[in-house]
Design a protein around this nucleic acid. Structure first.
Lengths: 230, 230
DNA sequence: TCAAAAGTGTTGCATCTACACCCATGG
DNA sequence: CCATGGGTGTAGATGCAACACTTTTGA
C-alpha cells in the first residue's frame, strides 16, 4: 500500500480563485496519447523518512519554488479503487512499477498570493497551470472530489482561522479583502458592515501608505499582523 | 509503509466523558512484561481492499460489537518515528513482522452512549476498558497526542454538527444534554439560556413522556429527530 | 468634469447574557 | 414536609442587517 500527499493550491490574483494543476507527463518526459493527457493535483508519494507536513512542503517547493507556503492538512482519501479507473491506469503504467497498487492520499490545501508574481513550474511536473475554479476539467483519480472537499474546507476556515491574508499581497486594501471573501464564501457582503468588522480585528493594521497608480481615489493600505492573533 | 486506522471512542455515562482503550496483548495472548504493558487506542492496519470508513467500522465492530456507530475521520498522523519509541518496540516485535516499519495512521473519533449498556470487548483486543478522560495514562505510540486532537475536534464540532445526541440515550432530558455540553466545552452554561436555545432547534423534539424513578420532579424527555436537520 | 472606486453612520431587530424563584415528585 | 433537581421570564447590552451619499484621484 502506498501513501501520497496531494496539494490543493488555491491562488488569488485579485479577480478569481484559481487552482494549481499539473499536466501528467510520462517518466521519460514524453506525452501520453491525447485522450489520456490529464490534469491532476500536484502530489507525490511520501518518502520513507519525511513527515506528512514535510512531504507537502517538498511537493510545493519542487513545484512552485515557494518556501514557507501556508499548508494545511484537511482530509485523507483512501477508496481502494480511487486509482484504478481506466482513465488513470495508462499514466500509472508509465510511472509506477505496480500501477494497480492501492494509494491512500493525505490531502493538504495551500494558499498563495498571485498578485506579485506567478509561481512558476519546475522540472518535476510536466506543465503546471493556474486554472480558474469554474474551468477545472475532469481531473485524474478522485481529484475533483478532493478539490471540492478542499473548497468546502476553505469556506469553513476562512473567517475563523484568519487565513484570507495568505491569498493577498502583504499590503492590501479592504476592497481586495472583501472581494476575496465574497469569492470564497460565494455571497455578496455589505461594504460598510464588512469594514466595521475588519476594523475591530487587531491583527489587521492600517499602514501609512496609500494605493498608487489607480484611476480613482487611492485606497488606504493594510497589513496582516500575525503577532496580534490571540 | 503501513497504514492504519485508530479510533478515539468517546463514551458518556451521564457523569463523565470516557475513552475506550485497549490493553496491548501479544499475538499468542500472553502478556508483555509489566513495564511494557500499555494501553492504546483501538486500531488496526487497513486491509487491502477496504475503504477507510469500512476499516474504522470494522475496528469498532470487532472491538465493541456495535454497528452503525457514529464515526468521523478527523486527522492523519505520520511522523516517521511515531512508532519507534522504546516503549512501543517490544510490543511491536511480538506483533509485526517488521516492527520498525513506518506506520501512518488515519484517526477517527466515535461517539457512544453508555447509558443503556456498556459495549463489551471482544477477542480481538486484550482487555478493553472505558477510562475517564482525566485518568488516561501514558499511551502507546503518539496516542495521547491523537486523543488530545480528537477532543479538540469534538469541542469544535459538538454544537455546529449537532452530534451531542450520539452520546445520549435515545430519550434524554435537557439537563442531561446540558451537562454533556458543559463537560465537552469545559464551561458552565446558563440553564435558562441553554433551554431557550435547544427549544428553537427543530431536531430536538419533546416526547409525551417523563422521567421515571427519580427522587425529584421528573423531567420531560426529548428525542433527536435527524429528519429535521436542515 | 467625468468615471470609478473609496470611504463613512444610524436605526431597528435579533440575539446573548445575567439573574432568582416556584414546582413536582419520592422518600 | 423535606430534599432534589425541573422548569420558567425579563431587562439591558451587544451584535447584525439594511441602507445612500460624499470624497479623492487620474484621465
Amino acid at each position: 500500500m502506498d501513501v501520497s500527499v496531494d496539494c490543493v493550491v488555491f491562488g488569488y490574483d485579485g479577480e478569481v480563485l484559481k487552482v494549481l494543476l499539473i499536466e501528467q507527463k510520462t517518466q521519460d518526459g514524453g506525452a501520453l496519447r491525447e485522450k489520456h493527457l490529464q490534469m491532476a493535483l500536484p502530489g507525490d508519494l511520501i518518502q520513507s523518512e519525511e513527515t506528512l507536513n514535510d512531504c507537502a512542503a517538498r511537493v510545493m517547493l519542487e513545484l512552485t519554488s515557494i518556501e514557507n507556503i501556508f499548508l494545511k492538512q484537511f482530509h485523507s482519501f483512501g477508496d481502494p479503487n480511487r486509482v484504478r479507473e481506466d482513465k488513470d491506469q495508462e499514466w500509472l503504467k508509465t510511472y509506477r512499477e505496480f500501477p494497480n497498487k492501492r494509494v491512500i492520499t493525505i490531502a493538504y490545501y495551500a494558499l498563495v498570493s498571485l498578485y506579485d508574481y506567478t509561481p512558476s513550474p519546475s522540472s518535476f511536473a510536466g506543465k503546471t497551470q493556474w486554472m480558474k475554479l469554474e474551468e477545472v476539467p475532469e481531473l485524474a483519480f478522485d481529484h475533483n472530489h478532493i478539490l471540492d472537499f478542499a473548497l468546502q474546507t476553505l469556506k469553513e476556515q476562512l473567517e475563523p482561522h484568519h487565513i484570507g491574508f495568505k491569498l493577498l499581497p502583504k499590503k492590501f486594501t479592504l476592497s481586495q479583502l472583501q472581494h476575496l471573501h465574497e469569492l470564497v464564501l460565494d455571497k455578496k457582503l455589505d461594504k460598510r458592515n464588512f469594514r466595521k468588522n475588519v476594523k475591530r480585528m487587531e491583527h489587521v493594521v492600517p499602514l501609512d501608505e496609500k494605493q498608487k497608480g489607480v484611476l480613482h481615489k487611492p485606497a488606504q493600505l493594510f497589513a496582516f499582523n500575525p503577532e496580534a492573533l490571540n
